[in-house]
């Protein structure tokens, strides 16, 4: 492990221990071990093909993986994806994935599935608790929708939204799941610098308000250096370094493998 790992907080929200995965014999991730500090924004960076999105898919349980993952100290590696979502891991996708035919509000509302409990029977019978929960879900969804600034288009079908608004809607959906960890997969892709700053500021604000931790995969090193408080660097499926932005910027291994060409931009 790199020297830059010093200063990691004592009680991490997420601990990865020896996480690995192979696809048809190709090692996509190998023995990835690091902690995500509680609160704030952590970034996972690395060149194309480093395994960043694969790591997200392992954490969210989409892939079956080797190694252990603990969320706030509790092991979750044996949980299937939907249980991990219910445990508080939310995510967005590289390409915003929305229910295009449904309204923006409805798209945010689906995020509440993670913490609501009403089953088909409850929906069918319209029980008092089902109705109470539905009201609460709608209030939460509306609040998140308002927070990302999409309330004015709440009733518009998601398919009609411009790209930046699709990102916002996706973030609002993830936020509506009341996550403990929000994983953002390249949130700046396709956005202008102003738009992406605004979006990440919004996420950071939500984090401060709720104690939520954000983890983002990002290409834009400058953006990462501006926003992240903690950085993990992946290269060819292996962890290269973790640490605070300043330490990462000066880590020789990171510079050699990855930052070299982008160093000026980053500085």
């Amino acid at each position: 492990m790199s020297a830059a790992s010093s200063g990691s907080p004592a009680a991490p929200i997420l601990s990865l221990r020896g996480v690995g995965i192979s696809f048809r014999g190709v090692r996509a991730l190998d023995d990835v071990t690091f902690d995500v500090p509680r609160g704030g924004v952590t970034a996972v960076i690395g060149p194309n093909g480093a395994g960043k999105t694969t790591l997200f898919n392992c954490i969210s349980g989409i892939y079956r993986h080797e190694g252990d993952i603990a969320l706030a100290g509790a092991d979750i590696q044996h949980l299937r994806a939907h249980r991990r979502a219910a445990a508080g891991i939310a995510r967005t996708f590289q390409t915003p994935t929305l229910l295009d035919a449904e309204s923006v509000f409805e798209n945010v509302l689906v995020g509440t599935h993670a913490w609501t409990r009403t089953g088909p029977a409850g929906v069918l019978l319209g029980t008092r608790s089902a109705r109470r929960e539905e009201r609460e879900a709608r209030e939460v969804a509306w609040e998140r929708l308002t927070a990302v600034g999409l309330a004015p288009v709440a009733h518009v079908p998601a398919g009609a939204l411009p790209h930046a608004d699709r990102r916002r809607a996706e973030v609002a959906r993830a936020l509506a799941s009341r996550p403990r960890i929000l994983m953002l997969d390249e949130p700046a892709a396709g956005l202008s610098a102003a738009e992406s700053d605004e979006l990440l500021e919004l996420v950071a604000e939500q984090g401060r308000a709720t104690g939520m931790t954000s983890v983002l995969v990002e290409h834009d090193v400058a953006l990462v250096m501006r926003t992240a408080g903690w950085i993990a660097v992946l290269d060819a499926g292996r962890l290269l370094a973790t640490g605070a932005p300043d330490a990462i910027r000066q880590d020789p291994a990171v510079v050699a493998a990855y930052l070299g060409t982008d160093a000026e931009v980053a500085a």
């Binding site: 939907h82 409805e106 088909p120």
Partner: peptide, 30 residues
Amino acid sequence: FLDQLVARRTGRALSLIRAGRILAVSNGVD
């Protein structure tokens, strides 16, 4: 019965399933 069954939270879960498995499980749908 059917109209009520596919409403609200169940209906939303179904929308997610139709949109794709990964999207559905990522939102906590079994």
